[in-house]
């Protein structure tokens, strides 16, 4: 992604292109491989049982959700700095896709928690800060989707987006402290270490690749869609003005 000044921006003409069709195909194949390894070939975990398979989606989703947040803050900074509409839309696409993957992270986490801990929700540091991340992202999207002019929406959303990553970090830190004062964070600390069995590690690896490809595909398409929407909005106004003019002219000819 090369930063572009508004004058030299040339946007996409449609949401599909040969490159993204290949990307989409790769994502589908990777998802198929993930299903094969995650659900069939990899063994059940000794302590977690079958529910360990949720992790092959859960952990990569959480990772790409964070990447989406960084894209939003990066795009917001560049938009505020260079007034690049391209980057503003990258920020928007990043936030929307990050929201989706945060929801997937939370839902898969709860589905994993029910058989493992016996409850859908505990006030664990990671769960709590992920829930707060979702709320912060929803706040950004609420501003970005304001019923107002593009400039107003974009600038205000960029300020919120600029503060997104700092806020996530502060919330994370405070929630960590808040919980560790009461209990040690033991629940989710058995993540990646060398004790993971080979096939399970490979399944997790496949999960990272598949989810990253889906993430990339979604970001590109969301960006293109947002770009085309902005085009339609500005062109739609021109067309509407032209139509009203034409109507007025007809009205004058035949009263």
């Amino acid at each position: 992604m090369i930063p572009q000044t508004p004058t030299e921006v040339t946007g996409p003409a449609s949401t599909g292109s040969r490159a993204t069709r290949v990307l989409g195909l790769l994502a589908l194949v990777a998802l198929g491989v993930l299903v094969l390894f995650g659900l069939i070939l990899s063994p059940a975990d000794a302590s977690q049982g079958e529910s360990v398979r949720i992790m092959y989606v859960h952990v990569p989703s959480a990772t790409v959700a964070y990447i989406g947040c960084f894209l939003t803050t990066l795009g917001s900074i560049i938009y505020l700095w260079r007034k690049s509409r391209w980057w503003e839309l990258v920020a928007y696409a990043g936030a929307e896709v990050a929201t989706l993957f945060t929801v997937i992270t939370l839902v898969t986490g709860m589905l994993w928690g029910r058989p493992t801990w016996g409850v859908y929700w505990v006030w664990d540091a990671r769960l709590t800060s992920t829930a707060m991340l979702l709320l912060l992202l929803l706040g950004y999207l609420a501003v970005r989707r304001l019923p107002a002019d593009y400039e107003v929406r974009a600038k205000r959303a960029a300020i919120v987006g600029l503060l997104l990553v700092p806020n996530v970090m502060i919330v994370r830190k405070s929630v960590d402290w808040w919980r560790t004062l009461h209990q040690k964070p033991t629940l989710l600390s058995n993540g990646l270490d060398s004790k993971i069995e080979g096939l399970m590690l490979f399944s997790l690896f496949t999960g990272f690749i598949a989810i990253s490809l889906v993430f990339g595909w979604l970001i590109v398409h969301r960006f293109r869609l947002a770009w085309l929407e902005e085009q339609v909005e500005s062109e739609g106004l021109d067309i509407a003005i032209a139509e009203r003019r034409a109507e007025a002219l007809i009205g004058e000819v035949a009263p």
């Binding site: 707060m132 709320l135 912060l136 929803l138 706040g139 919120v160 830190k173 405070s174 929630v175």
Partner: peptide, 12 residues
């Protein structure tokens, strides 16, 4: 919606 999540660390 914007402010309260941001102020959660202050509340904690």
């Amino acid at each position: 919606l914007l402010l309260l999540p941001v102020l959660a660390p202050v509340l904690i």
